[in-house]
Amino acid sequence: MSNSFTVKSTRRHRLHPAGLRAMHWLNALAMVLLIMSGWKIYNDEVLFGWLHFPDALTLGVWAQHGLQWHFFAMWILMVNGLIYLAYGFASGRFRRKLVPIRPAEVVAEVRKALAFKLAHDDITHYNAVQKLLYVGVILVIVLQVVTGWLLWKPIQFSEALALFGGFQAVRLIHFIGMAAIVGFLVVHVALALLVPKTIGAMVTGGPLVDDTAPDAVPAE
């Protein structure tokens, strides 16, 4: 036990290991394909009369091509996402980086952000708002996969569809999930552009860290 701990503590690795970076960018690609093709599909039968997505922002020439892209990119998202979740839990990355999320810290960080006093010298440490956003978007993507399957196969999964309130309810949830992800993307990309070294880190791997660095010690 103590042996393995010692070995682990001396192992230094990049903030974002190569596999994780590959998963991040593959997920980004799948997400963009899914959102743009999803807008194409949405435009064929809108949920809200006031909302049509501009054709220039949609993917696919006609509806069938939007569907083709959507039902291709979903496999990238699902396979990549499952590997990411397995990695996040098994490696301890989720435990080290994403929890705990303390409400008081979230409030304090939001105050700092509103006052433009966010500290971002140390990109190896996620603040409470970041943790909340990352955990939140992961959960929303899981919800999108579940509701996506229900929309694709509402009869084969009719029992689960009923739990969510039926076909049109799931369509609406899937839309709201998309909106949440787009909202996340806007904030995520804007903040990354404000602190460009975070983008560099997601490309090259960032600074060397080791798992026992103070911020990496799991609380309790």
């Binding site: 963009v32 394909l33 743009m36 054709d55 220039a56 922002l57 949609t58 993917l59 696919g60 020439v61 006609w62 091509h65």
Partner: peptide, 13 residues
């Protein structure tokens, strides 16, 4: 016309 526009976008992507 619409198709051409989308094809253009697809090409960039």
């Amino acid at each position: 016309l619409r198709g051409t526009l989308s094809l253009g976008a697809l090409t960039m992507l």
